[in-house]
């Protein structure tokens, strides 16, 4: 057992400062355990959001030593042993208190995306047939636990504050899951281009790096969506390329 120092962000609605706490670390502890221990021992009113403690619900997102992480899946022994650990709230969303931010913006974005619309059933009993190979890709996107860490790290939101225009990587993954769903017949490409501003994404891949579910956000969701948008709106360059290709073959 060793005592470790934590610098924890305390404060309300934008004002606040790091405060030092020391607590004992035992084998196998994760950052969330340390926060709970501090809460029980020294700071009963320390605000933390969490539920499952097993990386399944996406509640405990925060920035640990400056990196967007799930606190419940970040082991103390992965962090440098002799330096204080900083724990602060996600910075891309309005601050509420201590480690808690207001993520309601994300819920509003999702509502703006047209919902699932299936084709007519395949069988007389009202059911459909889909092959596993055809759903593998969509199942990858549906692993998303809505931790919003990708939203937190995306510079379009974090640095350029385009919250009014850009839906962010999480919702591009969501749109991809709908667009690539074998049964879906809705068209969301116009919205993607105009309402959801997919064009703001310049494929830096920061979102993919932080995703705790290891979803290949950029390669598998965003890039194919961008291609569909471009194809469907006759980008002159793409059109030319396609014409040339067509001539060659």
């Amino acid at each position: 057992m060793t005592a470790h120092t934590f610098k924890v962000w305390r404060g309300e609605r934008g004002t606040g400062a790091f405060q030092d706490y020391s607590t004992d670390i035992t084998e196998g502890m994760v950052v969330l355990d340390a926060m709970h221990q501090i809460q029980a021992e020294n700071a009963n009113d320390l605000a933390i959001r969490w539920n499952c403690k097993a990386g399944k619900c996406g509640s405990c997102s925060a920035e640990v030593n400056g990196h967007p992480k799930l606190m419940c899946m970040t082991r103390m022994d992965e962090l440098p042993a002799h330096e204080p650990v900083t724990v602060e709230p996600m910075r891309a969303f309005p601050h509420v208190r201590d480690l808690v931010t207001d993520v309601s913006w994300n819920y509003e974005q999702k509502k703006r995306i047209k919902k699932f619309k299936p084709r007519a059933p395949d069988a007389p009993d009202g059911t459909w047939r889909m092959m596993q190979a055809d759903v593998d890709r969509v199942q990858e996107f549906r692993k998303c636990i809505e931790c919003f860490l990708c939203q937190d790290v995306c510079h379009v939101l974090r640095d350029h504050h385009k919250h009014d225009e850009f839906v962010g990587p999480r919702h591009l993954v969501y749109t991809a899951a709908l667009e690539m769903h074998p049964l879906d017949i809705e068209d969301r490409l116009g919205d993607l281009k105009d309402e959801h501003a997919i064009g703001y994404c310049n494929i830096t891949k920061c979102c993919t790096t932080v995703c705790p579910e290891h979803i290949a956000i950029t390669d598998n969701a965003i890039i194919p969506l961008k291609e569909r948008v471009v194809d469907s709106f006759y980008d002159p360059v793409v059109k030319l390329v396609r014409l040339l290709r067509a001539k060659r073959t």
């Binding site: 299936p118 009202g126 059911t127 759903v135 549906r142």
Partner: peptide
Amino acid sequence: VRELEAWGAVFDRTTDGR
């Protein structure tokens, strides 16, 4: 359960697509 599929759930599939 079938209703969930109609609302967009993607369950694992049998070899005949159910």
